[in-house]
Amino acid sequence: MEITKEQFFEKYNINKSDFDEAEISWESLREIHKEYSVYRESLTPTAEYISNMLRTHPEAHTVRTRVKDPEHLIDKIIRKIIRERKTNAGYVIDIDNYKTEITDLIGIRVLHLYKDQAASLDKFIRELWELVEKCTIYYREGDYSKEEEHEDNELFNFKVHPAGYRSWHYLISTKATKHLHVAEIQVRTIFEEGWSEIDHQLRYPNDTNNVQLTKQLLVLNRIAGSADEMATSIRELKLNTGKLEAENQKKQNAIDELKTQIETLLNNYKVEKADKEKLQSKVQELESSITVTFPSRQQQEFMMIGGKISNGIDLNLFASPGPLLTDQNKIGIFDTRKYLEGYTHPDLLKKDE
């Protein structure tokens, strides 16, 4: 390495006492750095192959690829040795085992829009590659109640991340060349990625112990989590609204057809009272079956701002059960009760005047 040990410690915020206590050889690190700088070139084709395969999935919004920088590799090796030596005095990373001990030499991030899309991406990854170990799903403490917290199973390990990261982590093995390579794939939403990038930029490497900064970033973390939930809620609202509008249109077409029949009968002056009542009852039954589309209680909770829904509609409009009574002239809905009141056609009223 061109950089000196002292410069490296300052640049990456390495504690010299911890380094010395772990009995790490700087010369061994220099040897790894030199060897990896050449080996790194062979990782690029594998990284590109994995990324291109992941980009074929329709729910993969963005795929980002990186091959670990040599200096970042040395930083990670130092930190891992210091951490592992606290419980295992014989732990070592050297030129012979660093490729297996450091499993994210190839790193891929797959970003998706909605939280539930992770399940589809999970199936896709499992169909394409062998997993070196079970997928780990990281979540923030507080995302679930104690009753809702997931238990590990044959497919997933569930772990609370102390910094609040939310992500699905895979280690896969593949042979894009004759060499077997291990790559780490992280799957997360765009909101989760945005928070993690801000957190990493503001806290690392020099502010990992800054309590006030950490607290503020955890607030941002909760906001990002809420944004994910709200995005899913809005998508569900849109899908449900579309279905309801299609159903309502079918019913409205039936009502329009009945209204045409009523107009014809009334114009002919030959309608018996029983027939009129039957038609009136049928039309009212159809109109009352048209579903008013408005947010569910859960969606209202996400969208409520100062007692108003975000588009400015008072939530009290949705408080009472049954059909929503509205100004008919404003929204163009035919008022059947007024139309059939007295079994009189509007055109006949004009004649009587």
Rank of each mutant, 00 (worst) to 15 (best):
L180K: 04
H181G: 02
H181N: 08
V182P: 10
A183P: 08
E184P: 07
I185C: 08
I185S: 11
I185Y: 12
I185N: 12
I185K: 05
Q186D: 00
Q186I: 00
Q186W: 00
V187I: 14
V187N: 06
V187P: 03
V187M: 02
R188L: 11
R188C: 07
R188G: 10
R188N: 10
T189W: 06
I190Y: 09
I190D: 09
I190W: 07
I190V: 15
F191M: 13
F191A: 09
F191N: 12
F191R: 08
E192Y: 03
E192A: 13
E192H: 12
E192P: 04
W195T: 04
W195V: 01
S196N: 05
S196M: 00
E197R: 11
E197G: 08
E197W: 04
I198W: 03
I198V: 10
I198F: 05
I198C: 05
D199N: 07
H200G: 03
H200L: 07
L202P: 13
L202D: 12
L202C: 15
L202F: 15
R203P: 03
R203Q: 10
R203G: 06
R203L: 11
Y204E: 06
Y204H: 08
Y204C: 09
Y204A: 10
P205M: 04
P205F: 07
P205I: 01
P205T: 06
P205V: 00
N206K: 13
N206F: 14
D207H: 14
D207M: 06
T208Q: 08
T208C: 10
N209W: 10
N209V: 05
N209A: 08
N209C: 08
N209Y: 13
N209D: 15
N210G: 01
N210P: 02
N210C: 01
N210W: 00
V211R: 03
V211E: 04
Q212E: 13
L213E: 04
L213P: 03
T214R: 05
T214L: 07
K215V: 12
Q216I: 01
L217E: 09
L217T: 06
L218A: 09
L218F: 13
V219D: 07
V219F: 11
L220R: 06
L220I: 08
L220F: 15
N221M: 03
N221I: 11
R222S: 13
R222N: 12
R222G: 12
I223N: 07
I223Q: 09
I223L: 15
